[in-house]
């Protein structure tokens, strides 16, 4: 029993380990052999699987849309163009509903985020062992196929959005306006002295909410996908625990996968909408 538990925890640990390339303890460069070693590599290492799958998904998305854009017709659209137009119009409607400013970048940004995140999340629906097993046949020890279960990916996007929010806040409102927004609200007074006294309080509050934005933005996506992936892994463990449990696990996996179709779409959608809303706030006084 003890051995079995160890195997299970090892199995889970294995599935949660990225293929990390960095400097090994002996000074040479290579892939980390386990989670602890990957941690030791510190910042100057890279999760090759996350990079590979996310870029593959991004390229897939761009390939499809570029193909449509190249053969785009104003006449009767074919099936592929119909599908692309459906997505584009869906994104455009959402941008128009939430974004009141004028910025040609927001809608393409939203489209990229939605499709990219959706595709990365979609990898979650593949059986958890499928690609890692194939990778092991090729001699690759670790393979995490769902890029959004790597906080690096979600933080990467959230920080990108955060930088844009920062940039547009200062561009639209000016440095003074932006700083004023951080220091002169929510507490304000007509008495100048009291107003000055409120500044540190306001700054503390606003800084928290400012930093909370990219944090919640990225952790929401990461958390949902990580938890979903975890449940898939746990269900997958049931397959090794006898026929009855295995069949039960199969049903569970089917149910969870169907439910997960909703989650992956919803999380991609939420990330996109929040991006639009944050950028809208950056464009407007509030």
């Amino acid at each position: 029993m003890a051995a079995d538990t160890l195997t299970s925890s090892e199995y889970i640990r294995h599935h949660l380990t990225n293929l990390t390339y960095g400097q090994l303890p002996d000074g040479s460069w290579g892939f980390a052999h386990d989670m602890a070693q990957a941690k030791e590599m510190g910042f100057w290492s890279i999760n090759v699987d996350t990079m590979f799958w996310s870029i593959l998904m991004g390229v897939l998305f761009l390939y499809f849309f570029k193909k449509v854009a190249d053969s785009v017709t104003t006449g009767i659209p074919d099936g592929m163009q119909n599908f692309a137009e459906w997505i584009v119009e869906f994104i455009d409607d959402n941008v128009h509903a939430s974004f009141t400013g004028r910025n040609a970048m927001v809608a393409p940004l939203a489209l990229t985020l939605f499709c990219w995140i959706f595709l990365m999340n979609l990898m979650d629906l593949l059986p958890v062992d499928l690609i890692p097993s194939l990778a092991r046949l090729l001699g690759i020890p670790f393979m995490k196929v769902v890029s959004t279960t790597d906080p690096n990916a979600t933080f990467g996007m959230a920080i990108g959005v955060f930088v844009l929010v920062f940039y547009y806040s200062i561009k639209i409102k000016g440095v003074g306006g932006f700083v004023g927004e951080l220091t002169l609200q929510p507490f304000s007074s007509d008495n100048p002295l009291v107003k000055v006294a409120f500044i540190p309080v306001n700054l503390a509050l606003e800084l928290v909410s400012l930093v909370a934005k990219p944090l919640s933005h990225s952790l929401r996506l990461f958390g949902n996908m990580y938890a979903g992936e975890m449940i898939f892994i746990l269900i997958a463990i049931m397959y090794s625990a006898g026929a009855v449990t295995g069949v039960f696990g199969g049903l569970l996996q089917l149910g969870w996968a169907i439910f997960h179709i909703l989650i992956i779409t919803l999380q991609a959608f939420i990330f996109m909408v929040l991006t639009i809303v944050y950028l809208d706030m950056a464009h407007n006084e509030h």
Partner: peptide, 15 residues
Amino acid sequence: MNINLTLIGQLLSFV
């Protein structure tokens, strides 16, 4: 689960 250079890579590919 650790933050590393991947962050920058993701940010760049995102851009």
